[in-house]
């Protein structure tokens, strides 16, 4: 069996990644899942989080917000709404978004759309996470 498989990450704006990798970790809705070559065919929805993949033994990270993935034995395709590399992340903006979301959640105002605020919070946290690990 081949020891790599093709990883493709596509967003509505562009194709972000299209390389052979040895391993990838996907933030599935029901928890992270690691994929090695020869994985059984699978379709899953993605949560907000980070994708980690190993290309030539170096680790790469991407922050993703919602999407879904198709896993085939020799190929993994991920459709993500956004997929950002650490250097593309606007840390300042993410930090502000996080603070704002936290304020909204703790304000106790009934007009706050809790689900949306939580989503924003998670997105901001995932971005910060990816950006910081890379430093």
């Amino acid at each position: 069996m081949a020891d790599t498989f093709q990883l493709e990450i596509v967003t509505p704006e562009k194709k972000v990644v299209n390389v052979p990798v040895e391993e990838v970790q996907i933030p599935g809705r029901n928890g992270y899942l690691g994929v090695l070559p020869g994985h059984a065919p699978l379709i899953t929805e993605l949560a907000v989080g980070e994708i980690t993949y190993r290309e030539n033994t170096t680790e790469q990270r991407l922050a993703v917000a919602w999407g879904f993935a198709e896993v085939l034995p020799d190929k993994v395709t991920i459709l993500a709404e956004t997929a950002e590399r650490p250097y593309e992340i606007d840390v300042e903006r993410a930090r502000k978004a996080k603070v704002r979301a936290e304020q909204r959640l703790s304000s106790g105002d009934t007009n706050v759309d809790v689900e949306r605020a939580l989503n924003a919070l998670h997105r901001a946290e995932a971005r910060l996470d990816v950006a910081q690990k890379n430093q």
Binding site: E8, V10, G28, P41, I43, T44, E45, E70, T77
Partner: peptide, 22 residues
């Protein structure tokens, strides 16, 4: 061309979520 094949492989996928939910 590659995109056209996405999700159409003739295999039984494991669905992590119920298809309805997806």
């Amino acid at each position: 061309a590659a995109a056209a094949q996405f999700g159409t492989a003739q295999v039984d996928y494991i669905y992590e979520q119920a298809p309805e939910e997806l």
